[in-house]
């Protein structure tokens, strides 16, 4: 046997050994996520009051569903209040900054929760740091303007890209409210690039529509579920101009170290859809969305 070949064989053996060990370690780490929750006896739900997902009054679509999930796991439900700014870090343990569809990790922060269930839109940058469940809710980001705005709602063309372009075309020198680090971050939809006067809102997402009515800006971008609630609450005061994003989905987020927990949730969610539990909750909290996208909520 040649010395060179012997060295290569030796290296291969080491590489395989390392791969196996790492796999085992990762497996162990993954295996610990659900076990840890069961040992701890509580499921920590990270939430920020938003629309009817988390009302802030102890209920909401996501609050009820996570409570049912905790019950399914046989552990105690625990609500952990957080903010849009910290919610990703509170789950992943990493302080991150989105950069387009990518992220920059700024440092470590304490992990405070096991699951984000808060009408969290599935975005590419977020998927870099957290895992999502199967989609739980359809959404789209609309431009909503005050009723007396000179901007007129677009006429649907049947092509979503054309519709988005039509909406953005109207935004030049128009003031638009958004919220950083959320799915309503104007940077995600390149609003500045089309000449919009972007303003970042400091209040909660629920306060965006009232801010527009109060003339803080001419328009804002809203999630579809939030927009529908705003139309119900303030009819005649606002109008939907059109979409600034294609159809999106919301999902429940899990740490990347908790695959078992996520898989268990997906199975649980599937069962909820099958037995009508989820439909009942949707009709309770978002009847309009159910009517808007009945095909999404029909049992698959």
């Amino acid at each position: 046997m040649k010395p060179g070949k012997s060295l290569l064989s030796h290296v291969k053996t080491w590489v395989w050994t390392i791969v196996i060990v790492v796999s085992i370690l990762i497996g162990c780490a993954f295996g610990a996520d659900l076990r840890e929750i069961k040992e701890r006896g509580s499921l920590r739900h990270l939430g920020v009051p938003y629309a009817n997902f988390v009302t802030g009054s102890g209920d909401g679509l996501d609050v009820e569903l996570v409570k049912l999930f905790a019950q399914h796991l046989g552990v105690r439900y625990e609500y952990v209040k957080t903010s849009w700014k910290d919610v990703i870090g509170d789950l992943s343990g990493k302080k991150v900054k989105p950069k387009g569809d990518d992220i920059e990790i700024l440092g470590d922060v304490p992990v405070k929760g096991d699951i984000i269930a808060n009408g969290l839109t599935i975005l590419p940058w977020r998927e870099k740091i957290i895992d999502y469940s199967t989609p739980t809710f359809p959404t789209q980001v609309w431009l909503v303007a005050r009723a007396d705005s000179a901007m007129k709602p677009i006429k649907p063309s049947g092509d979503i890209n054309k519709d988005i372009a039509a909406v953005k075309a109207m935004l030049r020198e128009r003031s638009v409210l958004g919220k950083a680090d959320t799915c309503l971050d104007p940077a995600l939809y390149s609003l500045k690039k089309v000449g919009a006067m972007v303003r970042l809102f400091n209040g909660s997402l629920n306060a965006l529509a009232p801010a527009v009515i109060n003339r803080d800006a001419e328009a804002t971008i809203l999630d579809l579920p939030d927009a529908l609630i705003a139309l119900e609450k303030w009819p005649g005061n606002i109008k939907v101009i059109g979409p600034v994003s294609p159809m999106q989905n919301m999902g429940y987020a899990f740490p990347k170290t908790s695959p078992r927990l996520r898989d268990t949730f997906n199975q649980f969610f599937k069962q909820c859809r099958k037995d009508g539990t989820y439909l009942r909750l949707i009709k309770k909290y978002y009847p309009a969305v159910f009517r808007y996208y009945p095909e999404f909520f029909e049992e698959k």
């Binding site: 709602p153 109008k239 808007y292």
Partner: peptide, 11 residues
């Protein structure tokens, strides 16, 4: 207000 069925009116 001009809203379309697809974008809000249907609600």
């Amino acid at each position: 207000l001009g809203m379309s069925m697809e974008y809000g009116l249907r609600a």
